Simulated scan of single mutants.
Amino acid sequence: MTNRIHALLRKLIVEVRLLPGRALSEKEIAALLHVSKTPVREAIIRLAEEGFVTVVPQGGTYIAPIDVQRYMEACFIRFKLEEGAVVEAAKRHSLEDIARLKTSLAQQRAAAEGEQFTDFFLLDEEFHRTIFAAARLPGAWSVVNQAKGEMDRMRHLKRVFAVRRTEKVIEEHENIVAAIESGDVDRAREAVQSHLGSLESKILELSKNPKIWTYIEQINTRVIKKRVSRGSQLPA
């Protein structure tokens, strides 16, 4: 039950359906889900450890602000681990792995053509998970998936603000699959680097989307004001 509640709350936070600064009540969540407060408390503790919520002693529990530093750290972790995974996939893939990746590409095209962008996001996730499976490193994807929560929050913000590069993403995915299938390690590394970008490119990307940057600043400022008005302090 704790795992289910954690997964649900994490999904709502990552998809920016629970906004930064919103209070979380163990009692209300437990009543809504018809469970005891214990699994809810345990799920919130896990979310706090992941940086998604902030627990203020005697002041309540709140959805954490969007943290650009944590976003950059998540990008770094993903870049390094996925580059290694693509290299291993080029060396160790099977015909079944390539078939699964190509099926995913076809599904991504269908979702893009139908403007099913939420479905496209999920298919994108499955595509990258399949790369780690082809590398025979499925556990490494679990590490990436947990680390990239702030990255996913930013990706969903882009979706909200209609910042999309769907066609380009599919083209880059095609290049990655072709490189893995060829067994060319250098080509595979270059393909995934081109797809994921760099820390510098992510900063530049944010600067080119002032609406997102302004939204982050506004909502984080609102969180700070709420904390101050309650007489609490932000954690160091």
Rank of each mutant, 00 (worst) to 15 (best):
A188E: 04
E217C: 11
P65D: 07
R189P: 03
G231S: 01
Q146L: 14
L19T: 11
E42N: 14
V35S: 07
V16A: 07
M151H: 03
E26P: 15
S198M: 01
K208P: 00
G197C: 03
Q69M: 12
T214K: 15
I13E: 04
G60I: 05
H93T: 00
V16T: 11
A112H: 02
M151E: 10
R136K: 11
L9C: 08
L8G: 10
G84M: 04
V87M: 10
I29D: 06
L137E: 10
H195Y: 13
T130P: 00
G60V: 09
E115H: 07
R100I: 12
V35M: 09
S182T: 07
M154G: 02
N175C: 06
P235L: 01
S142W: 04
N209R: 14
I176N: 08
T130A: 06
R70Y: 02
W141R: 08
L122S: 10
V16H: 12
A90T: 01
F52Y: 04
S182H: 05
R4A: 13
I224E: 09
L204G: 10
V223K: 03
L234V: 12
E125T: 12
R10L: 09
P235R: 07
I98H: 00
T130K: 00
P20D: 01
K37A: 14
R227L: 11
S142P: 08
E96A: 11
A236W: 06
R165H: 14
A134W: 00
I203S: 07
S25F: 10
G197S: 02
N3G: 15
P235M: 01
E205M: 14
D67V: 05
I77R: 06
G149L: 04
T38V: 13
S36T: 09
R187Q: 11
V160E: 10
D97K: 02
D97L: 02
E50L: 08
V192Y: 02
F127C: 01
V86R: 08
T61V: 12
E96M: 09
P65N: 07
R189A: 13
S25N: 10
V86E: 01
